[in-house]
Design a protein around this nucleic acid. Structure first.
Lengths: 117, 117
DNA sequence: GCGCCCGTGTACTAAGTAGTATACACTACA
DNA sequence: TGTAGTGTATACTACTTAGTACACGGGCGC
Protein backbone atom coordinates (compact mmCIF):
# COMPACT_ATOMS: atom_id res chain seq x y z
CA UNK A 1 0.00 0.00 0.00
CA UNK A 2 1.14 3.48 -0.81
CA UNK A 3 2.50 5.55 2.08
CA UNK A 4 2.07 8.64 -0.05
CA UNK A 5 -1.59 7.98 -0.68
CA UNK A 6 -2.56 7.27 2.92
CA UNK A 7 -0.55 10.23 4.14
CA UNK A 8 -2.30 12.61 1.74
CA UNK A 9 -5.71 11.19 2.50
CA UNK A 10 -5.09 11.52 6.20
CA UNK A 11 -3.98 15.15 5.94
CA UNK A 12 -6.82 16.08 3.63
CA UNK A 13 -9.49 14.41 5.79
CA UNK A 14 -8.13 16.19 8.81
CA UNK A 15 -8.48 19.55 7.09
CA UNK A 16 -11.85 18.63 5.69
CA UNK A 17 -13.17 18.07 9.23
CA UNK A 18 -13.06 21.80 9.81
CA UNK A 19 -13.30 23.03 6.24
CA UNK A 20 -15.60 21.42 3.69
CA UNK A 21 -13.61 22.80 0.76
CA UNK A 22 -11.08 20.03 1.34
CA UNK A 23 -13.14 17.44 -0.49
CA UNK A 24 -11.46 15.23 -3.08
CA UNK A 25 -13.21 17.11 -5.82
CA UNK A 26 -12.30 20.59 -4.70
CA UNK A 27 -8.70 19.84 -3.81
CA UNK A 28 -8.33 18.03 -7.12
CA UNK A 29 -9.63 21.07 -8.93
CA UNK A 30 -7.31 23.40 -7.04
CA UNK A 31 -4.22 21.36 -7.85
CA UNK A 32 -5.35 20.84 -11.43
CA UNK A 33 -6.27 17.17 -11.75
CA UNK A 34 -9.46 15.18 -12.17
CA UNK A 35 -11.17 14.09 -8.92
CA UNK A 36 -11.07 10.44 -9.96
CA UNK A 37 -7.32 10.71 -10.34
CA UNK A 38 -6.75 12.20 -6.89
CA UNK A 39 -9.04 9.55 -5.48
CA UNK A 40 -6.98 6.79 -7.05
CA UNK A 41 -3.76 8.37 -5.89
CA UNK A 42 -4.99 8.57 -2.30
CA UNK A 43 -5.98 4.93 -2.38
CA UNK A 44 -2.65 3.95 -3.92
CA UNK A 45 -4.31 2.57 -7.00
CA UNK A 46 -2.11 4.78 -9.10
CA UNK A 47 1.47 5.87 -8.40
CA UNK A 48 2.03 9.39 -7.00
CA UNK A 49 1.55 12.22 -9.49
CA UNK A 50 4.18 14.43 -11.09
CA UNK A 51 6.51 16.68 -9.12
CA UNK A 52 4.43 19.70 -10.08
CA UNK A 53 1.20 18.23 -8.72
CA UNK A 54 2.86 16.96 -5.56
CA UNK A 55 4.19 20.44 -4.86
CA UNK A 56 0.76 21.97 -5.46
CA UNK A 57 -0.69 19.39 -3.11
CA UNK A 58 1.89 20.19 -0.44
CA UNK A 59 1.03 23.88 -0.68
CA UNK A 60 -2.67 23.06 -0.46
CA UNK A 61 -2.26 20.81 2.56
CA UNK A 62 0.29 22.98 4.34
CA UNK A 63 2.97 20.31 4.14
CA UNK A 64 6.68 20.52 3.35
CA UNK A 65 7.08 19.94 -0.40
CA UNK A 66 10.39 18.13 0.03
CA UNK A 67 8.87 15.73 2.53
CA UNK A 68 5.85 15.03 0.37
CA UNK A 69 8.07 14.54 -2.67
CA UNK A 70 10.17 12.10 -0.65
CA UNK A 71 7.04 10.11 0.20
CA UNK A 72 6.31 10.10 -3.51
CA UNK A 73 9.78 8.63 -4.11
CA UNK A 74 11.03 11.77 -5.80
CA UNK A 75 13.62 14.49 -5.26
CA UNK A 76 12.85 18.09 -6.15
CA UNK A 77 14.24 19.08 -9.55
CA UNK A 78 16.02 22.14 -8.19
CA UNK A 79 18.06 19.90 -5.87
CA UNK A 80 18.82 17.53 -8.71
CA UNK A 81 19.96 20.42 -10.84
CA UNK A 82 22.27 21.69 -8.10
CA UNK A 83 23.84 18.24 -7.91
CA UNK A 84 24.16 17.90 -11.69
CA UNK A 85 25.99 21.21 -11.89
CA UNK A 86 28.76 20.02 -9.58
CA UNK A 87 28.38 16.24 -9.49
CA UNK A 88 31.69 15.31 -7.92
CA UNK A 89 31.38 17.86 -5.15
CA UNK A 90 27.81 17.08 -4.17
CA UNK A 91 28.24 13.33 -4.53
CA UNK A 92 31.06 13.59 -2.01
CA UNK A 93 29.09 15.87 0.31
CA UNK A 94 26.00 13.69 0.38
CA UNK A 95 27.83 10.39 0.78
CA UNK A 96 29.94 11.90 3.51
CA UNK A 97 27.01 13.39 5.42
CA UNK A 98 24.43 10.68 4.94
CA UNK A 99 25.38 8.78 8.09
CA UNK A 100 25.96 11.83 10.25
CA UNK A 101 23.41 12.82 12.88
CA UNK A 102 21.15 15.74 11.98
CA UNK A 103 22.56 18.08 14.59
CA UNK A 104 26.10 17.74 13.31
CA UNK A 105 25.08 18.43 9.76
CA UNK A 106 22.88 21.36 10.69
CA UNK A 107 25.51 22.91 12.87
CA UNK A 108 27.93 22.89 9.98
CA UNK A 109 25.41 24.43 7.64
CA UNK A 110 24.68 27.16 10.15
CA UNK A 111 28.35 27.96 10.48
CA UNK A 112 28.62 28.30 6.74
CA UNK A 113 25.52 30.44 6.46
CA UNK A 114 26.76 32.76 9.17
CA UNK A 115 29.82 33.42 7.08
CA UNK A 116 32.39 31.95 9.39
CA UNK A 117 34.37 30.49 6.53
CA UNK B 1 23.10 17.96 -29.95
CA UNK B 2 23.68 15.75 -26.96
CA UNK B 3 26.61 16.68 -24.72
CA UNK B 4 26.47 13.21 -23.30
CA UNK B 5 26.76 11.56 -26.67
CA UNK B 6 29.67 13.63 -27.96
CA UNK B 7 31.48 13.28 -24.65
CA UNK B 8 31.18 9.50 -24.71
CA UNK B 9 32.15 9.28 -28.36
CA UNK B 10 35.17 11.46 -27.73
CA UNK B 11 36.36 9.39 -24.78
CA UNK B 12 35.77 6.11 -26.55
CA UNK B 13 37.57 7.21 -29.72
CA UNK B 14 40.49 8.38 -27.66
CA UNK B 15 40.80 4.98 -26.04
CA UNK B 16 40.26 3.22 -29.33
CA UNK B 17 43.29 4.99 -30.79
CA UNK B 18 45.54 2.85 -28.61
CA UNK B 19 43.26 -0.12 -28.06
CA UNK B 20 41.12 -1.57 -30.83
CA UNK B 21 38.76 -3.24 -28.35
CA UNK B 22 37.12 0.15 -27.81
CA UNK B 23 35.01 -0.12 -30.94
CA UNK B 24 31.29 0.69 -30.73
CA UNK B 25 30.49 -2.98 -31.07
CA UNK B 26 32.81 -4.25 -28.40
CA UNK B 27 32.08 -1.55 -25.85
CA UNK B 28 28.37 -2.05 -26.47
CA UNK B 29 28.75 -5.73 -25.82
CA UNK B 30 30.70 -5.13 -22.62
CA UNK B 31 28.11 -2.76 -21.19
CA UNK B 32 25.28 -4.99 -22.33
CA UNK B 33 23.54 -3.16 -25.16
CA UNK B 34 23.21 -3.56 -28.91
CA UNK B 35 25.85 -1.75 -30.99
CA UNK B 36 23.20 0.14 -32.92
CA UNK B 37 21.88 1.52 -29.66
CA UNK B 38 25.25 2.77 -28.44
CA UNK B 39 25.83 4.28 -31.86
CA UNK B 40 22.58 6.21 -31.67
CA UNK B 41 23.32 7.32 -28.12
CA UNK B 42 26.74 8.65 -29.12
CA UNK B 43 25.21 10.60 -31.99
CA UNK B 44 22.47 11.95 -29.74
CA UNK B 45 19.77 10.33 -31.81
CA UNK B 46 18.43 8.67 -28.69
CA UNK B 47 18.45 10.02 -25.15
CA UNK B 48 21.14 8.73 -22.75
CA UNK B 49 20.61 5.17 -21.50
CA UNK B 50 19.56 4.04 -18.05
CA UNK B 51 21.54 4.75 -14.91
CA UNK B 52 22.83 1.19 -14.90
CA UNK B 53 24.22 1.41 -18.44
CA UNK B 54 25.70 4.86 -17.84
CA UNK B 55 27.55 3.52 -14.80
CA UNK B 56 28.82 0.54 -16.77
CA UNK B 57 29.97 2.93 -19.48
CA UNK B 58 31.75 5.14 -16.94
CA UNK B 59 33.58 2.10 -15.58
CA UNK B 60 34.49 1.03 -19.09
CA UNK B 61 35.78 4.46 -20.10
CA UNK B 62 37.52 5.21 -16.81
CA UNK B 63 35.27 8.17 -16.07
CA UNK B 64 33.58 9.33 -12.88
CA UNK B 65 30.09 7.77 -12.78
CA UNK B 66 28.56 10.81 -11.07
CA UNK B 67 29.94 13.13 -13.74
CA UNK B 68 28.74 10.94 -16.59
CA UNK B 69 25.33 10.61 -14.95
CA UNK B 70 25.19 14.38 -14.64
CA UNK B 71 25.89 14.73 -18.36
CA UNK B 72 23.06 12.26 -18.88
CA UNK B 73 20.81 14.57 -16.85
CA UNK B 74 20.54 12.08 -14.01
CA UNK B 75 21.49 11.81 -10.36
CA UNK B 76 22.71 8.51 -8.93
CA UNK B 77 19.97 6.58 -7.16
CA UNK B 78 22.00 6.14 -3.98
CA UNK B 79 22.22 9.93 -3.61
CA UNK B 80 18.51 10.29 -4.27
CA UNK B 81 17.79 7.68 -1.64
CA UNK B 82 19.94 9.49 0.92
CA UNK B 83 17.98 12.68 0.26
CA UNK B 84 14.61 10.93 0.41
CA UNK B 85 15.46 9.47 3.80
CA UNK B 86 15.97 12.91 5.36
CA UNK B 87 14.35 15.30 2.90
CA UNK B 88 14.19 18.40 5.09
CA UNK B 89 17.79 18.10 6.20
CA UNK B 90 19.29 17.48 2.77
CA UNK B 91 17.07 20.01 1.02
CA UNK B 92 18.41 22.61 3.45
CA UNK B 93 22.00 21.47 3.07
CA UNK B 94 21.96 21.47 -0.72
CA UNK B 95 20.15 24.78 -1.10
CA UNK B 96 22.47 26.34 1.43
CA UNK B 97 25.64 25.02 -0.20
CA UNK B 98 24.73 25.32 -3.86
CA UNK B 99 26.08 28.87 -4.20
CA UNK B 100 29.13 28.35 -2.02
CA UNK B 101 32.54 28.02 -3.64
CA UNK B 102 33.95 24.52 -3.83
CA UNK B 103 36.69 25.14 -1.30
CA UNK B 104 34.23 26.21 1.41
CA UNK B 105 32.08 23.15 0.84
CA UNK B 106 35.04 20.81 0.74
CA UNK B 107 36.38 22.25 3.94
CA UNK B 108 33.14 21.36 5.65
CA UNK B 109 33.27 17.84 4.35
CA UNK B 110 36.81 17.46 5.59
CA UNK B 111 35.87 18.69 9.03
CA UNK B 112 33.07 16.19 9.20
CA UNK B 113 35.16 13.33 7.92
CA UNK B 114 37.87 14.09 10.42
CA UNK B 115 35.34 13.60 13.15
CA UNK B 116 35.54 17.08 14.57
CA UNK B 117 31.84 17.15 15.23
C1' DG C 1 -38.36 14.24 -4.23
C1' DC C 2 -35.29 17.16 -6.83
C1' DG C 3 -30.92 19.16 -7.17
C1' DC C 4 -26.27 19.19 -5.71
C1' DC C 5 -22.06 17.69 -4.22
C1' DC C 6 -19.72 13.50 -2.69
C1' DG C 7 -16.29 9.64 -3.73
C1' DT C 8 -15.22 6.19 -7.03
C1' DG C 9 -15.34 2.60 -11.09
C1' DT C 10 -14.25 1.93 -15.94
C1' DA C 11 -12.23 2.88 -20.22
C1' DC C 12 -9.06 5.10 -22.68
C1' DT C 13 -4.74 7.64 -24.47
C1' DA C 14 -0.57 10.38 -25.84
C1' DA C 15 4.07 10.61 -24.87
C1' DG C 16 8.22 9.01 -23.04
C1' DT C 17 11.70 5.17 -21.60
C1' DA C 18 14.74 1.77 -22.80
C1' DG C 19 15.92 -0.66 -25.51
C1' DT C 20 16.18 -5.33 -29.47
C1' DA C 21 16.72 -7.45 -34.04
C1' DT C 22 18.15 -7.42 -38.51
C1' DA C 23 20.22 -5.89 -42.50
C1' DC C 24 23.29 -2.90 -45.03
C1' DA C 25 27.56 -0.79 -46.98
C1' DC C 26 32.40 -0.04 -46.14
C1' DT C 27 37.33 -1.14 -44.97
C1' DA C 28 41.38 -4.00 -43.90
C1' DC C 29 44.05 -7.84 -44.36
C1' DA C 30 45.89 -12.21 -45.64
C1' DT D 1 38.91 -12.39 -53.33
C1' DG D 2 36.58 -13.59 -49.48
C1' DT D 3 35.84 -13.00 -44.76
C1' DA D 4 36.00 -10.64 -40.52
C1' DG D 5 35.05 -6.61 -38.19
C1' DT D 6 33.32 -1.67 -38.36
C1' DG D 7 29.55 1.87 -37.84
C1' DT D 8 24.77 2.79 -38.86
C1' DA D 9 19.79 2.76 -40.85
C1' DT D 10 15.26 0.89 -40.23
C1' DA D 11 11.57 -1.22 -37.98
C1' DC D 12 9.58 -2.76 -34.07
C1' DT D 13 8.12 -3.53 -29.03
C1' DA D 14 7.01 -3.85 -24.08
C1' DC D 15 6.60 -0.96 -20.19
C1' DT D 16 5.88 3.23 -17.65
C1' DT D 17 4.23 7.97 -16.87
C1' DA D 18 0.71 10.97 -16.22
C1' DG D 19 -2.99 11.64 -16.56
C1' DT D 20 -8.53 12.62 -18.98
C1' DA D 21 -13.48 11.71 -19.74
C1' DC D 22 -17.56 10.06 -18.27
C1' DA D 23 -20.82 7.62 -15.71
C1' DC D 24 -22.64 5.71 -11.52
C1' DG D 25 -24.92 5.36 -7.00
C1' DG D 26 -25.29 7.55 -2.32
C1' DG D 27 -26.37 11.11 1.03
C1' DC D 28 -28.00 16.02 2.60
C1' DG D 29 -30.90 19.87 2.44
C1' DC D 30 -35.04 22.38 1.50
Amino acid sequence: MSTFGTYVRDRRERLKASDATFSVRQVAQRIGVEPSFLSKVERGETPPPSEEKVKALALELGEDPDVLLALAGKVSSDLQEAIRKRPELFATVIRELKDMPDHAVLRIVREVRDGKW
